[in-house]
């Protein structure tokens, strides 16, 4: 059996993701994968899904089930989902049949939601992964974001992806480890952890720019550095003093100074912070990062 979905309405930057395309940094390809890995895994457990998800953004997604049946699990942030017009609790699971309609619309919080299915999303794997890399424009559906009138095929018969339940989401400041160039910010260093920043409206899968209302980095001298490896969660300071947190579709190499790196366990909840949200950072030692 297989199923087919017809996309009717889709928010910007909605992409197909899987756990990620790891091991390709030397070839110039960041791993991509879900902005909120824990939510991706939860949606997968709810649908008993093979690898692969539709990662939706705040504007949501409407689709028709052209052929079915299929099972859909959904999680991440707090979206509103309607099945044939009837509201359904988020996160959750739905059994879908041909001619059903699904409408996912913005909810109380979060930037990213995950729709996963009991069938495998029928797009070709590129370098072992179907994750869309918005920077390199590969993976997913022709390397691009989904648009209205796209069809997503689902193929039965694939083994579910096994992912253990994640630790409960931590609260409080986002935990970071001092970065490669923290010593180059002798005065800003202390203020970085004592001052709130704000999520700006300039965010995507490559990076999240922060507003710095207290001007912590305003007077940071522009530094000429040898380019070095970059990973998701790295907080780099641009030449004009803007802090930017690099995310899943990050550039593999960067030349801007990096003050700190968000620990892996806190990157999911950071990704879900909406523009305008205040964010504080707290440094931890490596022993306490997990």
């Amino acid at each position: 059996m297989s199923a087919s979905l017809l996309i009717r309405r889709v928010g910007p930057l909605t992409t197909i993701q899987d756990a990620g395309r790891f091991g390709m940094l030397a070839h110039g390809i960041s791993a991509s994968g879900p902005m909120d890995q824990a939510a991706y895994n939860l949606a997968g457990r709810l649908a008993v899904a093979p690898p692969g998800a539709i990662e939706i953004t705040t504007a949501g997604l409407d689709f028709d089930v052209e052929t079915g049946p299929c099972v859909m699990g959904f999680a991440g942030g707090a979206f509103t989902v309607r099945h044939n017009g009837k509201p359904v609790a988020w996160p959750g699971t739905l059994a879908l049949d041909a001619d059903d309609t699904i409408s996912v619309s913005p909810g109380a919080n979060g930037n990213y939601g995950y729709l996963r299915f009991d069938g495998r999303i029928d797009v070709p794997a590129v370098m072992g992964s179907i994750a869309t890399n918005s920077r390199a424009r590969l993976g997913g559906l022709e390397g691009r974001a989904l648009v209205a009138s796209d069809r997503i095929g689902l193929i039965d018969g694939y083994a579910p992806e096994l992912a253990s339940a994640s630790a409960p989401v931590a609260e409080g400041p986002i935990r970071v480890i001092w970065g490669l160039h923290a010593d180059l910010f002798p005065t800003a260093r202390d203020r970085f952890v004592s001052t709130p920043f704000r999520i700006s409206s300039r965010l995507d899968r490559m990076g999240v720019r922060l507003e710095d209302p207290a001007g912590v980095f305003t007077d940071s001298a522009i530094l000429s550095l040898v380019s070095d490896a970059v990973l998701p969660g790295d907080i780099q300071i641009l030449g004009d003093g803007t802090p930017i947190v690099l995310m899943r579709d990050h550039q593999p190499i960067g030349g801007y100074p990096r003050i700190a790196t968000i620990v892996g366990a806190d990157l999911d909840r950071f990704a879900q912070l909406r523009p305008g949200t205040a964010v504080r950072f707290r440094t931890v030692t490596l022993e306490h990062a997990r």
Binding site: I177, V226, L231, G233, T261, V263
Partner: peptide, 17 residues
Amino acid sequence: IMPLGDGALLVRFGATL
């Protein structure tokens, strides 16, 4: 040898090219 987050490290052989 410097940590880069909690899942990676860098072995650096120079601060300039």
